[in-house]
Amino acid sequence: MSVAERLRARTPTRRWVGLGVAAVLWVVAYELNRPLWDWLVLDVVGLDPASRLGSGVHFFLYDTVKIALLLVGIIFVITVLRSFMSVERTRALLGGRREGVGNVLAAGLGVVTPFCSCSAVPAFIGFVAAGVPVGVTMSFLIASPLVNEIAIALLLGLFGVGPTLLYVGAGLVIAIVGGLVLGRVHAERWIEPFVFETRLGGQVIDSTLGLGWDDRIQMGVEEVISILRKIWPYLLVGIGLGAVIHGWAPEELFTRYAGAGNPLAVPVAVLIGVPLYSNAAGILPLVEALHDKGLPMGTLLAFMMAVVALSLPEMILLRRVLKPQLIAVFVAVVATGIIAVGYLFNAVLG
């Protein structure tokens, strides 16, 4: 029996009970993900969490499951929600004259979602598939790893109010302006076509009007399966690369080539940061250590921004849904903004 036939055979009670059980299982799996790998990798296998091998293996297993669960949950929910709203209506609501407001709202949403760069990708796919303009969605993709409550709290505790407010303001400006610029270049042409398609029963459909709940649930299940099939190699490669470079702290390289005496220290810091992969919480201890050695704050914050907003693993994962032209423009726009902010911080903070 096909998925559609099983769904149609269900009574409303069975349907909602089934969805409730699936939701509970998803939450349990998400909550047990880290404890499971802590126990298996560190206790059973006995790898040292402080070693490159132990931290890398744990990172790969934990992040693969985490991002897969996020993909499943976010894509299913957004697919069901967008089945009630046409792509044209969504674009009319968030695009056009309201595009600037949409960018501000998307950047604000990014602030309250503490995703790392790769974890933000599932939400990005869902927003684009729902018809949200690509420029607006890019504002979310930039802001989510760059500015969030974890980064704000840690920066406040380590460096005080001034640098924290400058960082938050600069991050939001980069996200909003970057999204506006990407919207102006008509970036939709550089999105892989499958992202925009609405399918039911394996067929592309033009309208979701008149669909029942069983059809909408079927759409959600099919969309999850379809997108996972398309991106899983990129997911594994991206997270695998992140695991290899996870925990690498290039302090000597940084102090040698991005020290206070180098006028090109800020772009060098950004170039060093792009291949790395971490969230704000993971990179801030290195930033604090380098600051204690006398490196300028603007250079260090530019480095941190590059690590959390322009990671190479994120680019690999995005490649399945974005064409190379859009990835190149995205990196160029965000990197330019980060470099400008780095020089501004060095001038303001001395």
Results as ranks from 00 to 15, higher is better:
193 P>N: 06
193 P>L: 08
194 F>M: 06
194 F>Y: 12
194 F>H: 08
194 F>K: 03
195 V>E: 00
196 F>H: 14
196 F>L: 11
196 F>G: 04
197 E>T: 04
197 E>H: 00
197 E>R: 01
198 T>P: 03
198 T>W: 04
199 R>Q: 06
199 R>E: 00
200 L>W: 00
200 L>M: 08
200 L>N: 03
200 L>A: 02
200 L>Q: 06
201 G>I: 02
201 G>K: 02
201 G>H: 09
202 G>L: 07
202 G>Q: 02
202 G>W: 05
203 Q>G: 04
203 Q>S: 12
204 V>G: 07
204 V>A: 03
204 V>E: 04
204 V>C: 08
204 V>D: 06
204 V>W: 09
207 S>N: 10
207 S>A: 02
207 S>Q: 08
207 S>H: 06
207 S>L: 04
209 L>D: 15
209 L>I: 14
211 L>P: 06
211 L>W: 03
211 L>Q: 02
212 G>F: 10
213 W>R: 15
213 W>A: 14
214 D>C: 11
214 D>V: 13
216 R>F: 00
216 R>E: 12
217 I>F: 03
217 I>L: 12
217 I>T: 09
218 Q>G: 15
218 Q>E: 15
219 M>C: 00
219 M>H: 09
220 G>S: 10
220 G>V: 03
220 G>N: 10
220 G>E: 01
220 G>P: 01
220 G>K: 12
221 V>M: 13
222 E>Y: 11
223 E>I: 12
223 E>C: 11
223 E>N: 15
224 V>W: 13
224 V>R: 04
224 V>N: 10
225 I>W: 15
225 I>C: 14
225 I>D: 14
227 I>H: 14
228 L>Y: 14
228 L>H: 13
229 R>I: 13
229 R>E: 13
230 K>P: 13
231 I>L: 09
231 I>D: 02
232 W>I: 07
232 W>V: 07
232 W>D: 01
233 P>C: 07
233 P>S: 03
233 P>R: 05
234 Y>T: 12
235 L>V: 02
235 L>Q: 00
235 L>F: 07
236 L>Q: 12
236 L>T: 12
236 L>P: 12
236 L>N: 08
237 V>P: 05
237 V>L: 11
238 G>R: 02
238 G>T: 12
238 G>N: 06
239 I>S: 10
240 G>P: 00
240 G>E: 09
240 G>K: 02
241 L>T: 02
241 L>P: 01
241 L>H: 00
241 L>S: 07
242 G>D: 02
242 G>L: 04
242 G>Q: 06
242 G>I: 05
242 G>H: 08
243 A>K: 07
243 A>M: 01
244 V>D: 09
244 V>Q: 05
245 I>N: 00
245 I>Y: 03
245 I>G: 06
246 H>P: 07
246 H>S: 12
246 H>G: 10
246 H>F: 14
